[in-house]
Amino acid sequence: MYRINRSSNSIQRLEEKSFSGLGFREREHLQEWIAKQPGVLGEDLLIIQKEFSGFNDTQERLDLLALDKQGALVIIENKLDDSGRDVTWQALKYASYCSRLSKSNIANIYQQYLDRSQPGTKAEDLLSEFFDNQDFADITLNKGVTQRIMLIAANFRKEVTSTVLWLLNFKVRLHCFRATPYAMGDELFLNVEQIIPTQDTEEYMIGMAEKAQDDIEDQVEQKHRHVIRREFWGRIIEAMNATPSSLYQSISPGDSSWIGAGSGVGGIGLHFVATRQYGRAELYIDRPDKAENEYIFEQFMARREEIENVFGGVLEWEPLEGRKACRIKAETPGNIFDREQWESMIQFMVDSMYRLELAVKGPLREIWTARRSQLAPGVVGE
């Protein structure tokens, strides 16, 4: 750090010092400076307590307790020249303790602080003023897991910075500030710099942390979905094999949203599909050529009345505009992830598949025999 000398149009290097070398102490000096000027941490903070020890069954004390403009509690820990190894664990404990504080608890804590520092001042009045003159009744404090942690030290050990960076991936709201004293003659200076996350990358790091957490949650959810689907498809296959149909006898449960069995014609399958919105049985026509799929679908459509009579009900006929495939389906509302709906979904899907197989088996054989005769000599078509 340098001091600008206007008269000589030059800069003069300030001498970096240590707090201990200057005779400063953590509680008597650094803590007091921050308490009197919390804006040094880069935002508007309201200090509501020093040396807070209002935790059940423990004598531990956190250095400073504050509120930010969003009503979140901010745990501030000061460590002078060295962060120590355990500051993150210590601060996390304090944050967990403070997560239980209610709005009235916070007002009482602040009032106790004011009774010592500003006798006669009411906590609710200063809280209202800090929150842009809102009525105290309308102010929300310490909602959910909004607690924040600020660590201040001249030097941070690698095990601390590594832990902090890792915790950021889990949306723990944690900041590290490097506090450095400087001297020039008898003049002393203090520089407080946010180093994790750096101010110019904070928004990016928060975004990355949110993405990382979303990815973790998605992995957990995906694993859960896979387990549920395998169990559901196992039940479906068991129920299907209890019918006279042999369609699914060689099929194993999967973890996708569908399972399928062949119809005897390549690219045309009899599939079960189940999602959060529906369960269905379908004939899915998905050969490599779109025009051929449309031709086969049209041949089925020409025999729609016959097929639905054998099926014993109305089917949904979908040419799937804009896609290569076509399908014929029977569908019911349902949610595969709600086990209470499984019995009705499985009954509908298995019954529909059994009847759909009977209804399309003959027409498919005849349609495909006619189609093969149209193919060039030597082309198998399967």
Rank of each mutant, 00 (worst) to 15 (best):
M1Q: 10
Y2K: 12
I4P: 14
N9F: 15
I11H: 09
Q12I: 15
S20W: 12
R25Y: 10
R27G: 10
R27C: 12
H29A: 07
Q31P: 07
A35F: 04
K36A: 15
K36F: 10
G42R: 05
L45S: 07
E51A: 15
F52M: 11
S53G: 14
F55E: 15
F55W: 14
N56D: 13
E60H: 14
E60S: 15
D63A: 05
L65I: 06
K69M: 11
K69Q: 12
G71N: 08
E77G: 06
E77F: 05
D81G: 01
G84T: 08
R85E: 15
Q90G: 03
A91V: 06
K93T: 06
S96F: 05
L101F: 04
L101T: 01
K103A: 00
N105I: 02
N108S: 13
Q111T: 05
Q112N: 07
L114P: 01
Q118I: 03
Q118A: 07
G120L: 07
A123R: 00
A123W: 05
E124M: 09
T140K: 11
T140A: 11
T146W: 09
T146H: 12
T146A: 12
R148H: 06
A153G: 03
F156L: 05
R157W: 09
K158N: 06
E159L: 14
S162W: 14
T163V: 10
L165V: 10
V172Y: 07
H175V: 05
C176N: 11
A179R: 07
A179T: 11
A179G: 09
M184V: 11
L188K: 14
L188S: 07
D200W: 06
Y204F: 03
M205H: 00
I206R: 01
G207K: 02
G207V: 01
A209M: 02
K211M: 03
A212T: 02
Q213N: 03
Q213S: 09
Q213E: 08
D214T: 11
D215Y: 08
D215R: 04
V220D: 03
Q222V: 08
H224L: 09
V227P: 05
V227S: 13
I228T: 09
I228V: 15
R230L: 13
F232D: 04
I236Q: 03
I236Y: 07
E238I: 01
M240S: 09
S245I: 08
S246Y: 11
Q249E: 13
I259F: 15
A261Y: 13
G262K: 14
V265I: 15
G267V: 09
G267D: 14
L270E: 04
F272R: 00
V273A: 10
Y278H: 08
L283Y: 00
Y284M: 06
E292Q: 04
Y295P: 04
I296G: 01
Q299H: 12
I307P: 01
E308W: 01
N309W: 01
F311R: 03
V314S: 02
V314R: 04
L315C: 00
E321S: 04
R323F: 02
K324H: 01
C326L: 00
I328L: 02
I328C: 00
I328H: 00
A330Q: 01
T332F: 03
G334Q: 05
N335S: 06
I346P: 05
S352P: 09
L358Y: 02
V360C: 02
K361E: 03
K361H: 06
P363T: 12
P363S: 09
A370K: 15
A370Y: 14
R372Y: 12
A376S: 10
P377R: 08
P377Y: 14
V379S: 10
V379F: 15
V380H: 06
V380W: 04
